[in-house]
Design a protein around this nucleic acid. Structure first.
Lengths: 343, 343
DNA sequence: TGCGCCAATGTAATCGTTACCATACGAAAG
DNA sequence: CTTTCGTATGGTAACGATTACATTGGCGCA
């Protein structure tokens, strides 16, 4: 493989000029650039990215850390990140933790090791270095795309989960429902807690008393939504609607209702959260809150680009909150005259 | 950030010994290793990956190129790749093409530029360098996880789309269906052609004549499945079953049938392909062919690791074919006594 | 003519490893 | 007692770019 020296020799200039022709062409005379470009084409030259990176102390990689990519929510998020990375000569390095804290810390170390310039987190945990920042030394560039109870100073992007959940409950209450169940995410996650709190807020606004018996925990998977609904039905407590903390669980819940011979929305109204494509084509199409997942990824990557700017013209760390909106489809309807479910 | 020289100084050894302690500890006396490790912990040392990479001419990155990650099939595939990459000190660099040929060639150039050691393709196109290999010079390590009509020599992994499609049709024919429609993927893709050929093979085996009017083209999205079904119904040709080339389109087709007031499977049987999680929780649960997507990714990454081995003990390029299996759920049933659809 | 300045280019240090080769030393073999 | 060998370690030249600093030549202006 040809290197910059070869190009310099063939073009009859110094390596410095070749480098400048490539990175700051305005400093090089046009005719010289032509000669250099001819040589590059001739020798099929491709700059060695690791050599450049070593010298510039930049890898141009951003590490994206997610629990798993195999799910529509995170993959939409990653797609958004890649969308803007691509237009900024940055590359996405994928890190999957499977929820493992150690893995997260290993990934964080990659920044110190110059494998990545920064890290975007879609994780429920924070790396140790953020939780217990070392006295001396500065934190690596990290953007958080999830919510944390901790009062950390990371730039972050999110939606207003609290209000969004309340909105769903208000919608159901507006349809006359009073017995509204909830299927939450893993309750150790702050995001789950936030959505649950939003559910309670929605109930309070509608003057409905909270009933802990109507709240069941899932883990954001289809199966867990199915299981939660089965538990809900078996518990025998009456309910006419259920607000699920994501679409996957809502789809799972609908599947369980169908298996029990109950109709959505005639017997039970079901609402989700996230607005996955699959929800729109479900039977019946799922009422949900649209979460701009791709845009969240895009915003996160933009925050990362900001954080990577030279310190002197770096904007202050920001929190970006993207708008959500309720999408009413056919899985929610007026409360049935006769309560069938869970009696 | 401390470097290897600092460690050497603090531990009272040479940089060479530090390097050896890290990469080939068997060559270093245990007591020396201890001193070095103490220094590493002391100074919070993290080897600079770009410097090492520059020297070793290895980035330890594998570039995974997909049209889009925002879909369950590719994200499962990528998850599989990451699974084995993680256990081999390799990292996944994500490349999204959005179907753009130029983008694909740009990604290929990253290998020459040492940003990645090799490339795994889940693409319908091949990069120019594979289609027209340069006379001199060797091809970069590329693994293909799709099928190409070209007789290229890339190591590849796939399933037997031909037989798998035939299997679906045989299943439908076994239920008494004779008027079996097909919704295909973009027909310019070889994989789509292969699945269509399998459909024809299945018909032939059942002694059913092929009817071009029953074949409609989609693009693997939910919406395209919906649209294809609408076209099928509007065309007025009678049919009692439809074999879709992937689950997304099958789910879209079911949605369209439902919108027209038709029942699955009472009026029309619907079968998919891929076995997405969502299919199992659809209403009704979708009959499909299980494609071991995560495993395809894992196998692809293993082939990549082989291809990255030093030339002397490198196994010959292989083709891996993973097993598929039919999963019968409730979206397919015996042919109805009276044909309702498309009349 | 002489001075200063700017544009274009060259020289060489530097980034942090790895790996080749050399060396030192003790043990085993002759 | 010398030679040979093996183990542990040290010295240092790459790897291939970027960039601070130096150099050159030409031009405008007093």
């Amino acid at each position: 493989m040809a290197n910059i020296k070869d190009i310099a020799r063939v073009a009859g200039v110094s390596v410095a000029t070749v480098s400048r022709a490539l990175s700051t062409p305005s400093m090089v005379r046009p005719t010289t650039i032509e000669r250099i470009e001819a040589a590059i084409a001739d020798l099929n030259y491709q700059p060695n990215h690791m050599a450049a990176g070593l010298r510039r102390q930049r890898s141009d990689n951003v590490l994206v850390v997610v629990p798993s990519i195999y799910n529509p929510f995170t993959s939409a998020f990653v797609e958004g990140i890649e969308n803007v990375a691509r237009t900024s000569r940055m590359r996405v390095l994928l890190g999957i933790t499977e929820g493992d804290r150690d893995a997260l810390n290993t990934y964080t170390a990659m920044i110190a090791g110059k494998q990545a310039d920064g890290m975007i987190l879609l994780e429920s945990n924070l790396p140790d270095i953020v939780v217990n920042p070392p006295a001396k030394g500065t934190l690596p560039p990290i953007v958080s795309a999830c919510e944390y109870p901790l009062d950390h100073a990371l730039p972050r992007v999110k939606i207003d989960n609290h209000e969004a959940s309340a909105l769903v409950v208000s919608h159901l209450a507006g349809l006359g429902h009073r017995r509204i169940a909830a299927v939450t995410g893993p309750i150790n996650l702050f995001m789950s807690q936030d959505r649950l709190a939003g559910y309670r807020l929605g109930l309070a606004r509608a003057g409905i008393e909270f009933d802990a018996q109507l709240v069941h925990e899932g883990d954001f998977t289809l199966q867990s939504g199915y299981d939660a609904m089965v538990r809900l039905l078996d518990a025998g407590t009456a309910f006419t609607a259920v607000a699920c903390s994501n679409d996957e669980m809502a789809l799972g819940a609908m599947s369980a209702l169908r298996a029990r011979g109950l109709s959505v929305p005639d017997d039970v109204s079901v609402a989700g959260f996230d607005d996955l494509r699959f929800g729109a084509y479900a039977s019946p199409p799922l009422t949900t809150v649209h979460s701009p997942t791709v845009e969240i990824g895009e915003a996160a990557m933009r925050l990362m680009l900001d954080a990577l700017l030279p310190a002197d013209r770096q904007p202050p760390a920001r929190e970006v909150i993207l708008p959500h909106r309720l999408i009413v489809r056919e899985s929610t309807a007026r409360v049935p005259a006769r309560v069938v479910a869970g009696t």
